[in-house]
Design a protein around this nucleic acid. Structure first.
Lengths: 117, 117
DNA sequence: CTCTCATATGAACATCTGTTCATATATATA
DNA sequence: TATATATATGAACAGATGTTCATATGAGAG
């Protein structure tokens, strides 16, 4: 009958119950974490920030950010999977752009917070 | 005199130059990535979401989220270091809350994007 | 001062992540 | 078809990350 105290102790039952009712679905929270995680890497956020200004191809991003072509390509794959960027092909060149104006809002929210210190 | 092609090839010089001028400081972008990275974990985003509703102590968070006391405490440390949460002591109990209403904005921006699919 | 309990912390460990390197794919051009 | 170039991809590896476990710290109660 060994029960660790803190696993079970709830100091403010009413608060916990009230908040529990207001909490969004677990799935949605996990999805939100997964989305924001994609913004949480220097290379990726630079790509996002760059694409906020103009659509660009892999070589341009590579030169602009001073990151290898392979690294850019790998990160673009991550961004694609998270549906943050879309692309169009024109001959040999593939142009990437942000999938959605919404993406900018998330970036801005983070950036503004950083600038307010 | 070996130069890999893509490291140097810039297909759209003018675009790259223009975007480069508009890019924020490297530091700020890295800081933004570091900030958003903190939101990119299921446990932490749940803590943030919970504290959006009410200030809570470690035990309550542990019970609410069904995560061990130790894990909650470790994550609160991360959140503290990123200045996302603040705390006040009342006897044995330490109450955590969001440091800033701004934090909610970032969460909401991500959450809303998730809900729009 | 001692006991209890809320919280913090350090080490260990398994997993995840981002880059590099080598190579493959796809498209245009000669 | 052969070659050049833009991009993608898989394996490998080092470093980061999140949890657990054991233990420490700090404050109130007795």
């Amino acid at each position: 009958m060994e029960i660790e105290k803190c696993e079970v102790t709830v100091i403010h039952e009413n608060v916990v119950r009230a908040v529990k009712e207001q909490m969004p679905d677990e799935d949605k929270l996990v999805a939100t974490a997964e989305l924001l995680k994609v913004f949480g890497d220097p290379t990726r956020i630079k790509i996002i920030c760059a694409l906020l200004k103009a659509e660009m191809c892999v070589c341009d991003l590579s030169a602009l950010l001073d990151v290898s072509q392979s690294a850019v390509s790998h990160q673009l794959k991550t961004l694609k999977q998270a549906r943050l960027v879309k692309y169009r092909r024109d001959g040999k060149v593939i142009y990437y752009s942000l999938d959605d104006e919404h993406i900018g809002r998330i970036f801005e929210a983070g950036y503004e917070h950083v600038m307010e210190d």
